[in-house]
Design a protein around this nucleic acid. Structure first.
Length: 274
DNA sequence: TTAAATTCCTGTAAGC
DNA sequence: TGCTTACAGGAATTTA
C-alpha cells in the first residue's frame, strides 16, 4: 500500500510532467472519491487551472495551482495516479480523469476507494478537517532522534501504534513501521514512552534507513501499488519482516511472530526485538 | 488528552 | 465448481 516511499515515487515521477500543465478538463466518474468540496465545485475548481508546483507531505500529493489553491490526492490503500496518453485502455475502478493541455491524461484509479481527492486552499482544507495536522517528515535531515523522543515521551501506547499515527511522524504505514522496528531491534508492543534513549536513536535511524531504502527501490508493491507508469516497485523483495510471518528471521532464523497491535497485523522477531 | 474500537470498500484466498 | 467467510488496512469517526 502507498506509504511515504511509494507516494514520494509517484510524486517525483509526475512532477516533471505535470508542472506548468493546465488541467483543461476533469471528469469525475465516481463522485464518492471527491471528499471536498462537492464534486461539481471540485470539477469547476480545478478546470482551467495551471499546476505550478507538485509536492508531497506525508502520504499526500499536493498539486499547487495558479490560484493558490491545492488539488490534493491521497492514495489510501489501493489508489493509483497514472500519467497516460488518452488512447490508453481505461482500467476498471478509474474514478477521475484530468485532461491536460499537452494531450496527456492524469488518471486516478482506486479499487477499494479508501483514497480521496480534495480541492481548496490549505487553510480551507485544514479548517474543514480534510487535511490533518501532520507530524514532521521523517526523512527530513532536520528531523532528529531528539524530536522523535519528544513526541514519544509520556505515551503509554505501543510504539508501533504511534509510528502509524500521522500526527507523530508523517508518512509511516504498516510496512515501514514493522521494518523500522525490526532494524532498530525494538519490540513493537513496547510502551513508546518507556523506550531507552539508545532505543529511540536506533528507531530514528532505522526509520530513515527503511524509508530511504524504500524510495531508492521505488516503493513496495505488496498489494496494488504501482508508480505513475503502472510499474511495480522492487522494495517488496527486500522486506525483512512485513508479510513474512512464520518465515525465518533473517538475523537469527527463528520463525517470525504475528500479532495485532493498534488493530494492525504486526510481524516481528521475539528474539531479536526486545 | 489519550487509547481503543468501529467504519468504509473490494479483491483474494481459504474452507466447505 | 460455487458459495460463504475472513482478511488486508489509512484515517475519519466514535466511544470510553
Amino acid at each position: 500500500m502507498p506509504e511515504l516511499p511509494e507516494v514520494e515515487t509517484v510524486a517525483a515521477d509526475l512532477r516533471p510532467h505535470l508542472v506548468r500543465r493546465v488541467i483543461e478538463r476533469c471528469e469525475v466518474r465516481h463522485p464518492a472519491v471527491v471528499r471536498h468540496p462537492e464534486p461539481v465545485l471540485f470539477v469547476n475548481g480545478v478546470t482551467g487551472r495551471r499546476i505550478e508546483r507538485l509536492t508531497r507531505r506525508g502520504k499526500y500529493i499536493l498539486c499547487h495551482l495558479d490560484t493558490a489553491e491545492l488539488l490534493v490526492v491521497h492514495l489510501g490503500m489501493t489508489g493509483q495516479l497514472r500519467y497516460v496518453q488518452p488512447d490508453a485502455p481505461l482500467l476498471t475502478h478509474t474514478h477521475a480523469i484530468f485532461s491536460l493541455d499537452n494531450g496527456a491524461e492524469l488518471r486516478y484509479r482506486d479499487i477499494r476507494r479508501f483514497g480521496r481527492l480534495l480541492f481548496g486552499t490549505e487553510a480551507d482544507l485544514v479548517a474543514a478537517r480534510k487535511l490533518p495536522r501532520l507530524g514532521p517528515e521523517p526523512i527530513d535531515p532536520e528531523f532528529k532522534a531528539r524530536d522523535l523522543q519528544d513526541r514519544l515521551r509520556g505515551r503509554r501506547a505501543p510504539v508501533k501504534a504511534l509510528l502509524l499515527d500521522q500526527s507523530i511522524v508523517a508518512g509511516v504505514g504498516n510496512i515501514y513501521a514493522d521494518e523500522s522496528l525490526f532494524r532498530a531491534r525494538v519490540r513493537p508492543d513496547r510502551a513508546a514512552g518507556e523506550l531507552s534513549r539508545p532505543a529511540v536513536i536506533r528507531l530514528h535511524d532505522a526509520l530513515r534507513e527503511s524509508l530511504l531504502t524504500g524510495i531508492r527501490n521505488r516503493g513496495s508493491s505488496v498489494d496494488d501499488y504501482v508508480d505513475a507508469w503502472g510499474e511495480k516497485g522492487r522494495q517488496q523483495e527486500e522486506l525483512l519482516v512485513y508479510g513474512r510471518a512464520g518465515e525465518p528471521c533473517v538475523n537469527c532464523g527463528r520463525p517470525l511472530s504475528l500479532v495485532r497491535i493498534g488493530g494492525r497485523s504486526t510481524v516481528f522477531c521475539r528474539r531479536c526485538q526486545r
